[in-house]
């Protein structure tokens, strides 16, 4: 079985392993994995994933992953490019539904209810499990309308005053209000990259979700903007369960309480962030954290 080539095919342009000499090595190590090192489960989880497999057409991208997301916690997902961490994240609010060839099996529950059944509605699910994307993607609308978009489509505000209230409080919680309060009518695209990303976070929390998924939210931002977002994530933890995918180990160490390490579609190791970074159990995790491949 040559897992590495398979994955290379799935996500073109992002080599799973950058140093080819190690491929055989890594494959051997991966094949030796039976299940995940560390505790995948938590007490009273917000979301539970059991035996999740993901396929693009007939190529498998995620292999048999078990993982819980706890309440009021930030869980970071790290791993080399193309390891499937983003794909996995997108399972949690069924964003993969929008890709026709993508198929997800296994069980994923939110508050104990399976989200992949027919009765569960993706619209409702996505209102409860919000998502922030890698690149800031404000709509071609004003700042106000960007934030008001979610409440409007879901009918969350009974009148204009309530809507104003929601928009302003969301902008405040995203730490953006003071910077934009004088120009709420300006187009969202007129903001800087970091502001745009905070606008997207404000847009997400305006719907009042229970879980927020963040797919490398700082990868397109400069260090100062990144620091602002990281502070924000830490504040948001009080009210939300947060799952964040990041390619930066430092960021994972700074913002998360637990960390999950993915490699070639498998969940290699998961544990308290501190433990993972100071005392990784699995060789692959150790290799990654010590920077032998990235």
């Amino acid at each position: 079985m040559s897992t590495s080539t398979t994955l290379n095919d799935i996500i073109p342009g992002s080599p799973a392993i950058q140093e080819s000499t190690k491929v055989d090595d890594v494959t051997a190590m991966l094949d030796s994995i039976e299940g995940t090192v560390g505790t995948t489960r938590v007490e009273n989880p917000k979301m539970e994933m059991r035996e999740v497999d993901v396929f693009y057409a007939d190529k498998q991208a995620i292999y048999d992953v078990d993982l819980d997301v706890a309440r009021n916690e930030v869980i970071a997902m790290i791993g080399p490019s193309g390891c499937g961490k983003s794909t996995f994240l997108r399972c949690l609010n069924r964003m993969n539904d929008t890709i026709p060839i993508c198929r997800v099996t296994g069980s994923i529950t939110l508050d104990g209810v399976d989200i992949n059944t027919r009765e569960q509605d993706p619209v409702l699910l996505r209102a409860r499990v919000g998502m922030v994307f890698q690149k800031p993607n404000p709509f071609a609308k004003s700042i106000f309308d960007n934030v008001a978009y979610g409440p409007r489509i879901h009918g969350l505000a009974a009148n204009r005053a309530e809507l104003d209230e929601i928009v302003i409080s969301s902008l405040k919680r995203a730490g953006l209000y003071d910077e934009v309060k004088s120009r709420l009518d300006a187009p969202g695209t007129s903001l800087s990259g970091g502001q745009q990303q905070r606008l997207c976070i404000a847009r997400t929390i305006a719907v009042n979700p229970e879980v927020i998924l963040m797919d490398e939210p700082c990868s397109a931002l400069d260090p100062i903007a990144t620091a602002r977002i990281e502070e924000l994530i830490d504040e948001l933890r009080e009210n939300y369960a947060i799952a964040i995918v990041t390619h930066s180990m430092q960021q994972a160490a700074r913002v998360s309480q637990r960390t999950a390490y993915f490699h070639l579609g498998k969940l290699v190791e998961v544990g308290k962030t501190n433990d993972i970074f100071t005392n990784p159990q699995h060789d692959l995790t150790e290799n990654y954290i010590t920077g032998r491949f990235g």
């Binding site: 509605d121 619209v123 209102a127 009918g155």
Partner: peptide
């Protein structure tokens, strides 16, 4: 369940 869930659920039939 939060109020968002209820409101969204109530609107689903109409939106679909």
């Amino acid at each position: 369940m939060s109020s968002t869930t209820e409101i969204v659920q109530a609107s689903l039939a109409r939106r679909y």
